[in-house]
Design a protein around this nucleic acid. Sequence first.
RNA 1: GCGCCCUUAGCUCAGUUGGAUAGAGCAACAGCCUUCUAAGCUGUGGGUCGGUGGUUCGAGUCCACCAGGGCGCGCCA
Length: 594
Amino acid sequence: MTDIFADFRARVVTALREVVPDLPDDVTARVEVTPTRDPAHGDMATNAAMVAAKPARQPPAKIAAALAAALAADADIAEAVPAGPGFVNLRLRPAALRAVLPAVLRAGEAYGDSTAGGGLAVNVEYVSANPTGPMHIGHCRGAVVGDALANLLAKAGFAVTKEYYVNDAGAQVTALAWAAYWRYLQAIGTTLTEEEFSDEVPGGLQYRGEYLVPVGAELAAHHGPALATATRGIAAPESWIDTVRDFTIAAMMQATRDDLAALGVAQDVFSSERALVDSGAADRLIARLRGDGLIYEGVLEPPKGKTPEDWEPRPQTLFRATQFGDDVDRPLRKSDGSNTYFANDIAYHADKIDRGFALLIDVLGADHGGYVPRLKAAVAAVSRGNTKFEAVLCQIVHVVRDGQPVKMSKRAGSFVTLRDLIDEVGRDAVRFTMLTRKADAQMEFDLNAVVAQTRDNPVFYVQYAHARCRSVLRAGAEMLGAAATAPEALAGVALDSLTAEPELAVIRRLAAWPRGVEAAALAREPHRIAFFLYDLASDFHMLWNRGRDDAALRFLQVDRPAETLARLALVAATAAVIRSGLAVMGVTPVEEMR
RNA sequence: GCGCCCUUAGCUCAGUUGGAUAGAGCAACAGCCUUCUAAGCUGUGGGUCGGUGGUUCGAGUCCACCAGGGCGCGCCA
């Protein structure tokens, strides 16, 4: 772990304590050392004098002056000057700044790894789509955001488990079984029409998409006509529904895993809702909460202002969510006696708590925003406040092609599936693009733009920067030999020749990577990684472009091997950080553009 | 009616958890380049951060109210 901002922060705190003795720890804890926004302000700046001003009962400017004097004595600091309302700007000696490069080269992609998470056990649950059909673009964002967030937290030192909750219980799964049964009957040659069949299904035939045709065919292959009546009509549901449902869920989950794999997502744990119900875990959990006095039979008030037409007061089994900050108490049993989705979800989260996680993060669609307070309440109740719960909400993605919205036509059962999307633009473009917006902001996914090879396409721009790095390194190895240009060797070369401002700009950016990772992880915002990489790519392209005008500024200089090696060290470090960031995003770095 | 999220340049969006003169890409404008490193480069203009108050050394960021957009609101998942 090498974070020069953390390093210099420690030095600033030491100097501050010399200047202002007896500062409480909670004051020094607020001291920050941050990159400057403007290079004219130096390499880093600290707010130390300002946070110390009040407890020290001295004006910030006075402390800043004394602090600057103390810091100027540091051999690695070229200049420390008070500025603005009480900042102290630091300009490092070039050697101190350049020392970032060997640190990056030795760590490789591990550069930026942090211990900020302290090994805290975190469970990140994402996707968790019903196994009732193929994954579509609606699921895609949550999948990418969840996966990248999990990677990010792992990089920041959390012990992360990636998880998928299979909603394989409940009415929708029964409807799925009926839909698969219809395809089965068709496969064995029933004479029923779709409408005749639908009339016999409780709630009607719901899933009419063709994706169940192969499932029906397989059922027919395995069971022949045994699941139907002798006339190939509808048999009593008890005789087939468990068989059909289990088979169909297995088939759908296999398809889901395949889709996720195509997206580069592979959760560590798949948890089944049905298993929780069947094992009695859900009922035991409800009994336990009842024992704690958190469950009662009661009647809810109708929603204020807009009362639903069919509202009637009815006693229900309720969980005291209001005791933990929710707006109303929440029902746990449906009128047919079975558990609500929420009841099983409490049991599921209790299961995660029992597995020892200290933090549960659910990545959910924004339409589940109203569900978050009750989950938070449930986790607080079950864990007795010992486990934290957070939700990351993902807003809708609108797909656009040629400036026109791409509509899903549900009637035909055809919609934009995740697989279609990946086939059209590629996995890396899908993943990167999904991370170019804050998760809780709506996003437009422009199919033309994400494959464009221009600067305004961040996917291309970052990939291109990496490819350029690799191209230079290949040519450098050709020129100076593979051994001399390997990362370990470059970590030891003299770097004094790196003095140009665009070179220093890249180094400053590389130096900021560890704190960027940490900040993104603590904010649960993986999109920041995409923006960091875009900025780094931009710095690098700018450096590259200087060589277009002036051949002396190109990376490879035939007659000046020492200078070339220094530049190759910079290039190799840049490539390593890009790879480090792309690894978090789950995007493959490319070696060359084609 | 209530709750949550959003509102930043003409457009699409960042904004390092309260820091300095609010940034980037596109579009616009002005030059350069047409290759040595193709998928261009450099520079310029552009802002009441939805509005009004408040908190403090300091607010795009926190609080209150208002306006506009999205989502949700007892047995669906």
